[in-house]
């Protein structure tokens, strides 16, 4: 079968909080897969593995704007609010964030104990 050319991975992305690892093929703000979308942060990106569509990409993570740790975009590890913040940094500076974010963080805490899975599986 004549298969499409593979993009070789540039490296392996690892989330320093949850240890998620995945190969990424691009780091930056203008992923090669799209002409119309621009990222608002420098991100680790791979081709979306869940669709045959070649123009779809998937953002894996980026660096926390405060501590520079590499973190995945999962809601248990980081949040984006005009910039990327890892959750430890958010919690440290919770007061600096708007109420909406603070509430979200409060909601998250009890949940995390009971079933941490839920926040992720529910998109």
């Amino acid at each position: 079968m004549d298969a499409p050319k593979e993009v070789q991975p540039t490296g392996e992305f690892t989330c320093q909080l949850c240890n998620l690892t995945a190969p990424y093929t691009y780091y930056g703000q203008k992923p090669p897969y799209t002409r119309s979308i621009v990222l608002l942060e420098e991100s680790y990106v791979m081709k979306d593995p869940f669709t045959p569509d070649k123009d779809k990409f998937l953002i894996l993570g980026s660096h926390c704007s405060l501590c520079r740790r590499s973190v995945c975009v999962g809601t248990e590890c980081s949040l984006f609010y005009s910039k990327r913040f890892c959750l430890p940094c958010v919690n440290e500076n919770l007061k600096a964030f708007p109420l909406e974010i603070q509430e979200d963080m409060d909601k998250k805490k009890p949940q995390e104990k009971s079933s941490s899975k839920k926040t992720h599986t529910k998109a």
């Binding site: 690892t21 869940f50 998937l58 599986t121």
Partner: peptide
């Protein structure tokens, strides 16, 4: 688009877990 990103990412996370 954001919704799709989250969907795909959570699939990835689920598979790895």
């Amino acid at each position: 688009l954001h919704f799709q990103q989250r969907q795909s990412f959570s699939r990835l996370l689920r598979i790895q877990r």
